[in-house]
């Protein structure tokens, strides 16, 4: 899976939790889930669970800790996929 496919899958996952549509339209690697998309912090765990389901990976606490931006989330997904 290339970076573009990953980004597009991630975009689909986060969409239902986004409260600032403008941020989603300008989605890039630097997008911050809380600052730019206003995702509620209690919904970040839903993002993590959805990512686990979509990619069939397990995200431990240490990895979850980093998943606050698009870039960091893609890095975590890539790392977990490679370890499969």
């Amino acid at each position: 899976m290339n970076n573009e496919e990953l980004l597009s899958k991630l975009k689909t996952i986060i969409s239902p939790y986004v409260q600032k549509q403008e941020g989603l339209n300008n989605l890039s690697e630097d997008t911050d889930f809380i600052k730019d998309l206003e995702i509620n912090s209690a919904n970040l765990v839903d993002v993590v669970l959805d990512v686990e389901d979509e990619f069939d990976i397990e995200i431990d606490n240490d990895s979850m800790e980093k998943m606050l931006t698009v870039k960091a989330s893609i890095a975590v997904i890539e790392e977990k996929l490679a370890a499969k």
């Binding site: 509620n40 919904n43 765990v45 839903d46 669970l49 686990e52 606490n61």
Partner: peptide, 16 residues
């Protein structure tokens, strides 16, 4: 919160 989050979702409580 009751509308935004389903804490009964599988795995939700365990992650937090």
């Amino acid at each position: 919160a009751s509308y935004q989050s389903n804490w009964q979702r599988k795995g939700w409580l365990q992650k937090i």
